[in-house]
């Protein structure tokens, strides 16, 4: 982890409900420092782009070979040669650059990318990530750039719901799904709370519509507070 948490003590927002998806995206965007080079994963993480501050100087990387990616393209701006990693037509911003795939992943692996935001099936209390394969026998495995991003970016933020559809926690002592990377996640953003994860375990940054004690009762992971001794 290289980016400092946004608060020096754990904050419990009890006067409201859980975050909406839009609010989760806005919270992540708030926490990305000005001037960062950022990769946003396919799906929900892509929506973080809609909440970046104007003039922040944040430069978006897409692993298919571009820095300076702009918003999704519409109408006459759609160009079949210009897409993001999710194969959605996008636009280029002034100052954009293009490069081939080996360079694109070299800049990731080489530690030049500040932040990536990824979805997840599970994250462990120490930051192991599982997000590429359910391990189901009939599933066709597909990893894309997930493993490269997980170990490449200086900070890996996960954006996910805290519980699976069947109610089981996705922040777990140990991942049971096939791993994407070991000890690579630094933060987990969910609708109920934001967590720091790492070698020292899991720390709650903020809660939304619930408290740390309540969350501790619903997770199998020991939780600590920022600023607690």
């Amino acid at each position: 982890m290289t980016i400092a948490p946004p608060t020096d003590r754990t904050v419990e927002h009890l006067d409201r409900g859980p975050l909406t998806r839009e609010e989760m995206a806005a919270t992540i965007a708030r926490d990305i420092p000005d001037g960062s080079y950022v990769n946003l994963g396919i799906g929900q993480p892509t929506t973080v782009a809609d909440h970046l501050r104007p003039g922040s100087g944040i430069v978006l990387h897409t692993e298919n070979g571009m820095l300076g990616m702009g918003p999704a393209a519409t109408g006459d701006d759609i160009d079949p040669d210009l897409m993001n990693a999710g194969k959605i037509p996008v636009t280029e911003l002034p100052g954009a650059s293009y490069f081939h795939h080996a360079d694109s992943f070299a800049m990731m692996r080489g530690g030049h990318l500040d932040v990536c935001v990824l979805g997840a099936f599970q994250v462990s209390e120490h930051g192991d990530l599982a997000n590429w394969h359910t391990g189901a026998p009939d599933a066709i495995p597909a990893v894309g750039g997930a493993m490269d991003l997980a170990i490449g970016a200086k900070d890996v933020f996960v954006m996910m719901t805290l519980f699976a559809k069947d109610g089981t926690p996705k922040l777990v002592p140990r991942c049971t799904y096939p791993l994407t990377g070991l000890a690579c996640v630094s933060r987990v953003y969910t609708e109920h709370a934001t967590f720091l994860v790492g070698p020292h375990g899991t720390t709650v940054v903020e809660t939304f519509g619930t408290g740390v004690d309540d969350l501790a009762g619903r997770l199998d992971v020991p939780l600590t507070r920022i600023g607690a001794s």
Binding site: A106, I140, P141, V143, M147, D148
Partner: peptide, 14 residues
């Protein structure tokens, strides 16, 4: 099928 992480696919060819 051999699944290879995208960056490894590129770097192995490089």
């Amino acid at each position: 099928l051999e699944v290879v992480p995208q960056g490894n696919l590129a770097e192995r060819m490089r």
